[in-house]
């Protein structure tokens, strides 16, 4: 592959908590390994390119989330990308709208049905550090992030939870996020990949068609130190 094209979808609607960070982390980790990256920001009034190698979608408020789902359904490119096995990372509101349905502005909206799950409102807003033990077959180690959402997500048969929650709420207090094929959704909001570099590497490996173990190693002294700090903070608070 000459250049890795990463599409960041709808920053005009879904970019509330530093969501750009995921694009920056992926580009940084790819370039450090000599892989050229072409980041592509696609606004909600533009067509989504079919030819990209990876798609990212971020978090946001109810109104923009509902508009984003409608435009993604109209466009159709994200569904085709999922069918073609392209890696997709979806955060918070973006995660919810990949499911069958989600709640916004006090009512249910149709989602893209890329992931077998549905979301509704929880009893209270989940705000704070979240940590969990990830699905072992993903090889990404424990996860750490910050969550801030009012929704709860119920997983169907055709998806696996991304992690079992050890701190925070995630989907429902027991599991966090979901994955199926090359699609990952999570409530770890904003720049989730900055604290979870092995999820970034998994997405990159999927995009270039290799095993993450075959990617050249990167000096992760600072991300690892940050992860250790956050796990320690979560443990100290419990």
């Amino acid at each position: 592959m000459s250049t890795l094209r990463i599409v960041w979808l709808y920053p005009d609607l879904l970019s509330t908590y530093g969501d750009r960070g995921n694009l920056l982390v992926l580009a940084h980790r790819a370039r450090t390994r000599g892989i050229d990256v072409e980041p592509m920001q696609v606004r909600s009034d533009q067509r989504i390119p079919h030819t990209a190698d990876m798609y990212l979608i971020g978090g946001g408020e109810d109104g923009p989330q509902a508009v984003a789902a409608e435009r993604l359904l109209d466009d159709g490119a994200l569904n085709r990308a999922a069918e073609a096995g392209k890696p997709i990372l979806a955060i918070c509101a973006g995660y919810q709208l990949l499911g069958e349905s989600f709640y916004a502005n006090g009512r249910a909206y149709a989602g893209l049905n890329i992931l077998d799950l549905r979301s509704d409102r929880g009893p209270s807003r989940a705000v704070g550090e979240i940590a969990g033990d990830a699905a072992p077959q993903l090889g990404i180690g424990p996860i750490t992030g910050f969550e801030n959402h009012g929704g709860r997500t119920h997983l169907g048969e055709a998806v696996q939870p991304l992690a079992r929650v050890t701190a925070g709420v995630g989907n429902d207090g027991a599991t966090e996020g979901a994955w199926a094929g090359h699609v990952i959704g999570t409530y770890m909001h904003g720049p989730a990949l900055s604290r979870n570099p092995r999820i970034a590497d998994l997405l990159l490996a999927w995009a270039v068609g290799t095993d993450p173990a075959h990617l050249p190693p990167i000096d992760d002294t600072w991300p690892e130190r940050l992860r250790a700090e956050r796990f320690q903070a979560v443990t100290a608070a419990q």
């Binding site: 969501d19 704070g128 550090e129 910050f146 904003g190």
Partner: peptide, 9 residues
């Protein structure tokens, strides 16, 4: 604010 995500903005 407990959340530092905004530094990526």
């Amino acid at each position: 604010g407990f959340d530092t995500s905004w530094i990526y903005d």
